[in-house]
Design a protein around this nucleic acid. Structure first.
Lengths: 228, 228
DNA sequence: CCAAAAGTGTTCTTTATACACCCATGT
DNA sequence: ACATGGGTGTATAAAGAACACTTTTGG
């Protein structure tokens, strides 16, 4: 038991994890097995321990609940509505994360802790204030993806320009012109063209590319701004 | 006394308040009267009560410590470093605020609670991790001022184009071309020209303008993007 | 031979940048 | 009369937007 002179809110983290399938942008949800909101879906999360930052806590919870590790993650926003949890005062630091969906099978999941990927436009009513958290996360992703090369975190290491373009189209919610897109992205000279080609597709095989992180970091340090 | 099954970090807010003087961008600091960091300067802040959100807490603390009310404020970032406070675990939700400096005299301040405006490039070594908080706040301000019309929050209701341009120059840290600046800002048609003119200056009096908030909100709703 | 995505340039429009002089006012 | 900032337009360069056909591959 721990005693304090003044009352303290509980401190938790929640994680909005985005992944990209062939036909849509997805988020990972966990179905709650207990009240409150038993049966509702919610973002994975949990309490912050005394010896870890919120980001460390978010990564730990994510590894525990989904097995996902080493993904791109950043702090999203801190939700502190007084009644966001009906049991007691809980302040939650939400994080948002991007993963290469190809690396993680859809967790079949134990009965007590079912995890599932949902297309972002087919997410059901969520537990607590998680609907609001999702809105904030989507807005952040849309705003950020155009000015920082974080979209690559959603794709496999080697990808085609078609996949890259589709990723932006799914996130931004509008179509892009193929020739203009290629001109722009190749003009930045941040994609390493590989000799390798796409395999097993029933149409002309596309060239594979890799994002050149080292080059980006060098350019960024000298004032270069990524932009799509 | 309040007892919990597991230990909880204390939850606080800190406020980075920016103001604009004629010759520089300033932040409001408070000199600490007690250990730890006695004598050091720090951002105003304090504990979050159980019946208020962090933003409400930040506004309350700010009113208590400085008398400033009703300013633009938004959440900045949550700092959760395990050793950021040497006494115990404290997680702080930092906010950043913009005020019309003209509305607030530099608080002379009681001895126990001296408040003072510092030019952002002349801030001394601060208490706790507040140096880091300041860096994050400055980066946010620079990033945001170009794409959202928040800079007006730093100016009086009625301002000249010269003041407006100087504000951007101070925040962005570089000079702007006068004619191009005017072309762009007037082209957005978000400034209401007043019949009134500047007074008491020893040179040609400039026309005064007002930011048209209502028009901006209408335009924003239909997809318009502010940009300097 | 058909379907499906890959790959490729040019024109036009819009936006950004660079730049210099006269004007009004107070001291 | 001079110092100070206010106010104004044009030309050039760069970036963005619109647009259609040929190629390769598997079925």
């Amino acid at each position: 038991m721990y005693t304090y002179q003044y009352p303290r809110p509980a401190l938790t983290v929640d994680c909005v994890i985005f992944g990209l399938s062939e036909d849509s942008l997805k988020v990972l949800l966990i179905q709650r097995a207990h009240d409150p909101y038993s049966g509702y879906w919610a973002f994975p999360g949990g309490f912050v321990d005394m010896d870890e930052t919120t980001e460390v806590a978010a990564r730990r919870e994510l590894a525990e609940e989904t097995g996902i590790q080493e993904m791109f993650m950043e702090q999203l926003y801190t939700f502190s509505g007084v009644d966001r949890d009906p049991r007691e005062r809980v302040v939650s630091v939400a994080h948002f994360a991007l993963v290469k969906l190809s690396d993680y099978k859809v967790t079949a999941g134990s009965d007590a802790n079912r995890a599932e990927w949902f297309a972002v436009d087919q997410v059901p009513k969520l537990a607590f204030d998680h609907d609001q958290i999702l809105q904030v996360a989507l807005a952040r992703l849309k705003g950020k993806v155009r000015y920082q090369p974080i979209g690559f975190e959603l794709l496999p290491e080697k990808f085609t320009l078609g996949q890259l373009q589709k990723m932006y189209e799914h996130i931004l919610g509008r179509e892009l012109d193929k020739r203009n897109f290629r001109k722009k992205i190749l003009g930045m000279e941040l994609l390493l063209p590989l000799t390798e080609q796409q395999k097993g597709v029933s149409h002309r095989a596309a060239k594979l590319y890799q994002f050149d992180r080292a080059k980006y970091q060098a350019l960024e340090a000298s004032g270069f701004m990524f932009e799509i």
